[in-house]
């Protein structure tokens, strides 16, 4: 926990520094129509700096204790996080400059793939269950969100092809 505490406090100190820099650029004093834009952030950053600084020094003096996250804990967390990243990337696609490295599949197709991979890889469910749920869940969410509530989600080639 000590190392994680130090890193987090350090990060907050850095945030405070950035905010202070920006506040000073905007002006922290008084203008004709009241406090300048930087006034409120300046004081906030100052308080953050003091708090994070105190947390940092306190953690620094402490001895190392139990670890923030053990290897056995990190694996399941990674198994959740990595598929989420892939899911978001599939939804949005990847563009490097003008070149499309990965075409955007839209949210529903990406969700189907993500559900299928996760259920099969982590849950080890039967293929039948995996396929049925991976198709049914996006279809149901599509009906609820796009048809009932008319909230558009990012779509891709499949929806275009189906004319939805």
């Amino acid at each position: 926990m000590r190392a994680a505490d130090l890193v987090t406090a350090g990060f907050l100190i850095a945030v405070a520094g950035v905010v202070l820099y920006d506040a000073l650029r905007l002006g922290v004093g008084w203008s004709t129509d009241g406090p300048k834009s930087g006034f409120f952030p300046f004081w906030l950053a100052l308080v953050l700096l003091l708090c994070a600084g105190a947390v940092f020094t306190r953690a620094w003096r402490r001895h190392a204790d139990r670890v923030f996250v053990t290897r056995a804990q990190l694996i399941p967390v990674g198994k959740v996080l990595i598929p989420v990243v892939v899911f978001i990337l599939l939804t949005s696609g990847i563009k490097l400059g003008d070149r499309t490295v990965l075409p955007a599949l839209g949210l529903y197709v990406a969700a189907a793939l993500y559900l299928a991979v996760y259920m099969r890889w982590v849950g080890r469910h039967r293929w039948v269950t995996v396929v049925v749920l991976a198709v049914a869940i996006p279809v149901v969410t599509f009906v609820i969100f796009e048809k009932w509530f008319i909230v558009p989600m990012p779509k891709g080639p499949l929806e275009d092809w189906l004319g939805l």
């Binding site: 959740v80 899911f87 949210l107 559900l115 996760y118 849950g123 749920l133 869940i137």
Partner: peptide, 27 residues
């Protein structure tokens, strides 16, 4: 099963986040 619930909740969360401003960056 947990392996069904977890991705389902993530997908619903992603939909909720995107719905606010229709911005990919929000996800």
């Amino acid at each position: 099963p947990f392996a069904v619930l977890t991705p389902l909740i993530v997908v619903v969360c992603a939909i909720g986040s995107y719905a606010v401003n229709s911005r990919m960056i929000d996800i």
